[in-house]
């Protein structure tokens, strides 16, 4: 088994159309989904959860608020999972709640 990172990109929730009443359900969806990976013994560790605010520095000293100005999705968080290969890791990513809210999962192996 090798380690892979699943990177979750999502539109900023403030800009998405999810009503606040559904946020609790969304949290549960995430927990159940990660629980499902853990139930297969494939969960390695939580990555850092990034807060939505931030700044972007570009060449020429241009600073903008937030990374989501130019790209539709922002990096929210990531987890490390164990899988046989990239295809297997991609299978694990299926059902990720980020997909339900207009986001995506990027699956990346480690060097080595």
């Amino acid at each position: 088994m090798k380690d892979f990172v699943l990177l979750f990109r999502q539109p900023d929730l403030k800009h998405s159309k999810i009503p606040a009443s559904e946020l609790q359900g969304l949290k549960k969806k995430w927990e159940d989904w990660v629980g499902g990976i853990a139930a297969q013994g494939r969960f390695k560790e939580h990555g850092i959860r990034l807060a939505p605010e931030g700044k972007v520095l570009r060449a020429g000293g241009v600073v903008t608020d937030g990374p989501f100005v130019e790209i539709r999705e922002m990096l929210g968080s990531f987890i490390v999972v164990q899988a046989d290969n990239l295809e297997d890791a991609t299978t694990l990513a299926h059902g990720c709640p980020a997909l339900d809210t207009g986001g995506s999962v990027e699956i990346r192996p480690f060097y080595g």
């Binding site: 549960k28 927990e31 990660v34 629980g35 853990a38 139930a39 297969q40 013994g41 969960f43």
Partner: peptide, 23 residues
């Protein structure tokens, strides 16, 4: 739902086949 949530958390701490089945 509460039990499921607790098992999810437990699996993140320690995986075991028995916990996976209970979950």
């Amino acid at each position: 739902e509460a039990i499921l949530d607790l098992y999810n958390q437990l699996l993140l701490l320690n995986y075991s086949p028995s916990v996976a089945l209970h979950r």
